[in-house]
Structure formats: structure tokens, C-alpha cells
């Protein structure tokens, strides 16, 4: 059985994602509500797929990405990014300067409010991300994307992702 790790600071979300994924009976699901917690789990277990929320307080998604990709042990792990803020310009995939700036904008937070970060598309290339899910997404989408990624792996192809 494939091991899936869901990392998101929203407890309710991880809870419902756990529920949905577990119910398929296909996957063993682990949850982390914190980037660091996620990293600890990655160290501990051998995951096949990580659902990663990009914008999290304390340790942002890309830190986790870094960790995953920089360690040869975990390089192979598939990643699906979940984000509320993805650079969106209809059908244009654009390298947005603004997004980059926003992405680098970490420090000016108001207390308690998550920093307004936006997932920059170019990270897909950079970190070899298999999929991107824009919140809110439907259950169906979630499940089909997961299935597709595992099938691709099985087929040995790396398909371009679909959001």
C-alpha cells in the first residue's frame, strides 16, 4: 500500500483529506499540520506521495520541498502542491515577477495572519512537482489526480501535470 503524507496547517482540511483518502482503502495516510512535523515524518517513514500545502506559517511549503529534493533518500517522492494562491492568469502560464516578490515576502506578517504568499509556478519545474491542486478542489479531482500520478509512475512516464 502506498504511503501518503498530507501536510497542511488547516486541521479540518487534513482531517477530511485523511478521511477521503483512507476511505478508498488504497492508501495509508499520515498527517502533519506543520512543515517541521512533516519533515520529521519524512525522515521517519518512506512516503510515496506528499500532499503539500504551500503557504504555512513557520516553515513554508518550499522548505519542505527543499528538504525532500535535497536528500537523495527522498528525492523520488511525488509531490502534489495544494495552494489557495496560485499565479493565475487564465490560460497563461506566466512567470510572474509579482508572484516571485510575493513569494519572497515572508517577514512582513501581521501577528496571527498567515503571510500572503503565492505559489510561484516556476517551482514546479524547479522541484519536479507532479501536481498542483488549487483550493478549493472537489473530491473527485483529488482522487483522480492521485490515481493518475501513481499510474504514470507505474507506466514509467512522467506526464505533464494537469491542474
Amino acid at each position: 500500500m502506498k504511503k501518503i503524507l498530507v501536510i497542511d496547517d488547516e486541521q479540518y482540511l487534513t482531517s477530511v483529506l485523511y478521511s477521503i483518502l483512507e476511505k478508498t482503502g488504497l492508501y495509508e495516510v499520515f498527517i502533519a499540520n506543520d512543515g517541521q512535523e512533516g519533515i520529521d515524518l519524512i525522515k521517519k517513514y518512506n512516503f510515496d506521495l506528499i500532499f503539500l500545502d504551500y503557504i504555512m506559517p513557520k516553515v513554508r511549503g518550499d522548505k519542505v520541498l527543499q528538504f525532500v529534493r535535497e536528500h537523495s533518500d527522498h528525492k523520488h517522492i511525488k509531490v502534489i502542491i495544494m495552494s489557495g494562491l496560485i499565479d493565475i492568469l487564465s490560460n497563461d502560464v506566466v512567470h510572474s515577477k509579482q508572484c516571485e516578490e510575493a513569494a519572497n515576502d515572508v517577514s512582513e506578517d501581521r501577528a496571527g495572519t498567515p503571510s500572503p504568499n503565492i505559489f510561484p509556478i516556476h517551482l514546479i519545474e524547479q522541484y519536479g512537482i507532479q501536481g498542483v491542486l488549487e483550493k478549493p478542489f472537489a473530491r473527485g479531482k483529488l482522487l483522480s489526480l492521485t490515481q493518475t500520478i501513481f499510474e504514470q509512475e507505474k507506466n514509467g512516464k512522467k506526464k505533464d501535470f494537469n491542474t
Binding site: 498567515p114 504568499n117 478549493p136 472537489a138
Partner: peptide
């Protein structure tokens, strides 16, 4: 940017929980 994030998460939860 901040608000959107704060809204999208709950929306996602609502969506998925309902389903």
C-alpha cells in the same frame, strides 16, 4: 492575498467535508 488564503481553506474544507 491574505484574505483569499483564509477564505480558500475553509472553502476547501466545506467542499471536501460535504462530499
Amino acid at each position: 492575498a491574505g484574505v483569499a488564503h483564509e477564505i480558500k481553506n475553509p472553502l476547501a474544507i466545506i467542499q471536501l467535508s460535504t462530499e
